[in-house]
Design a protein around this nucleic acid. Structure first.
Length: 459
RNA sequence: GCCUCCAUCGUCUAGUGGUCAGGACAUGGGACUUUCAAUCCCAGAACAGGGGUUCAAUUCCCCUUGGGGGUGCCA
């Protein structure tokens, strides 16, 4: 009841140990969308409590990737490694209240155990334990899980989940190096940072009862939980680099638009409830609700992502492409950029295809590079036909599409060949490749002088 | 092994007791006859299986099967 009236505060809490995977990105997206949809706050927290796996580059990449995706956080990043004192204090509170205990078991001893920790130190008298601590013996602090009864919580997607306490172990909350484990750190932070909803991957479902118990032992109200399904590789199984791109950085390098990725990822496990798929961020925010997330694990279909990227490329303003072209060809005059942008926009699938597809508009092709098209369309008579075409084009006064087409038709008629056998060789002569925008458009864009030069050059 | 979550076309999904089970990607075919795209049209394609509950189950319950996750001094 009270929780419903609490302001929404959600977080993305990655651990800087590797690249930001699409699964993590989607978790971030859902947190972001939920915050924006409810007028809440989205904050970033870095869970860097594992000193062995900490990776500075991973942290940099993570921040860069989130920024690239435009998932702008309202607060943070907060770093758990800077909050050690707080966790230590809370762990001490749990000791004092009898909800946690010191454990002095060595790693060697733990390794001999077959089915997890056997609660060996649980019944050690507090005084004895205290003495050991004071003499400098190494220890961890474990949570004292109840031995009977059960713990339940309400998952926003799955409803009630109840776990018998006998299945819960005495988890470590403070490690030998005085760093907290995820369990303690996230509970403490989510409390003090007033997190209203915990939206995280569903690999956390089985630890949630332990977290609920921790909240209870600390006398706190637990946030609402919503466990998000995982993203699987196309054929099923874990998503990994081996099975294709898996990290946000990979997709950026492949030429995907950040918003296309965000749009696609948001639809992996969620739908707006109608048939909309290609959506602006604003639309997604307006349509977003937790209830519409599916609990089912989903497969990553890169073909659909490709399609969606194309859709978003077509939605981009022409100015995006003219700016890119300006960067690629700084010495060119700008009125050409708009024409090229219009011609290329509908046939781009990836933004990084622009250099290769636009090249011949600005630089003369050295030779015909498309051997396949050449084999299909180029004949012994082609140079002759192209010469006739060049002559015909030369006569044109107003070099526009209509007149260019008429010139082609005239050559076809006079030499009795099909249009394809003239147009394709001409395309190869002018652009070096066998595929692209309409030939008349290309020629018009190139201009009369340049066209004739290129055509005559081939001979 | 034990615990736990999940289950609609190949894939992402709509659906919440009575629907010709809808859409999208992908696939196949067609149109646009200079190419490649884009675009438009058409087609094939699903309720995992078995029990219940009900006049009626894709929809509710149980079991099986399949898949995921957990079982760390990793997150």
């Amino acid at each position: 009841m009270t929780q419903e009236t609490k302001p929404v505060r959600v977080r993305f809490a990655p651990s800087p140990t590797g690249y930001l995977h699409v699964g993590g990105a989607r978790t971030a997206i859902y947190n972001y969308l939920f915050a924006k949809a409810t007028g809440g706050t989205f904050y970033l927290r870095i869970e860097d409590t594992d000193r062995k796996r900490y990776n500075e580059d991973a942290l940099k990449d993570l921040l860069r990737d989130l920024e690239w995706l435009a998932l702008n956080w309202d607060e943070g990043p907060y770093f758990q490694s800077e909050r050690l004192e707080i966790y230590g204090k809370e762990a001490q509170k749990l000791i004092d209240s009898g909800n946690a205990y010191y454990c002095f078991c060595t790693e060697e001893r733990l390794q001999t155990l077959e089915h997890g920790y056997d609660r060996h130190c649980r019944e050690l008298p507090p005084e004895a334990a205290k003495q050991k601590v004071e003499t400098g013996e190494k220890f961890v602090i474990r949570f004292k899980s109840p031995l009977d009864g059960s713990t339940k919580f309400n998952d926003l997607l799955r409803g009630n989940i109840e776990t018998p306490n006998k299945d819960l172990d005495d988890l470590v909350i403070l490690k030998r190096d005085k760093f907290p484990t995820y369990h303690l750190a996230s509970v403490v932070d989510d409390h003090y940072m007033q997190t209203s909803h915990v939206l995280r991957g569903d690999e956390w479902i089985s630890s949630t009862p332990k977290h609920v118990l921790l909240y209870k032992a600390l006398g706190w109200e637990a946030p609402l939980f919503c466990h998000l399904p995982v993203i699987l590789a196309p054929g099923g199984g874990k998503l990994s680099k081996r099975k294709g791109a898996a990290s946000v950085g990979d997709f950026r390098d492949l030429g995907y638009l950040p918003h296309a990725l965000v749009n696609f990822l948001s639809l992996l496990g969620w739908s707006p409830g109608d048939d909309r798929e290609v959506m602006e961020l604003k639309e997604m925010i307006e349509a977003f609700s937790l209830e519409r997330i599916q609990p089912k694990a989903v497969a990553f279909d890169e073909k659909k992502l490709e399609w969606m990227n194309g859709m978003h490329i077509r939605l981009l303003p022409n100015s995006y492409f003219t700016e890119e072209l300006k960067k690629l060809y700084p010495n060119e005059q700008s009125e050409k950029f708009l024409k090229v942008a219009e011609l290329l926009k509908p046939r781009l699938k990836f933004t990084n295809e622009l250099p290769a597809l636009s090249n011949y508009f600005f630089e003369r092709p050295q030779k015909i590079v498309d051997e396949k098209a050449k084999a299909k369309y180029w004949t012994e008579q082609s140079p002759e036909h192209i010469a006739l075409l060049a002559n015909e084009l030369e006569k044109i006064e107003i070099f526009n599409i209509q007149n260019i087409e008429a010139a082609f038709m005239k050559v076809c008629e006079s030499s009795g060949i099909k249009l394809g056998m003239l147009a394709q060789p001409a395309r190869l002569a002018v652009s070096g490749v066998g595929a692209g925008p309409g030939l008349w458009e290309i020629l018009e864009c190139l201009g009369k002088e340049e066209c004739i030069f290129r055509l005559r050059c081939v001979n």
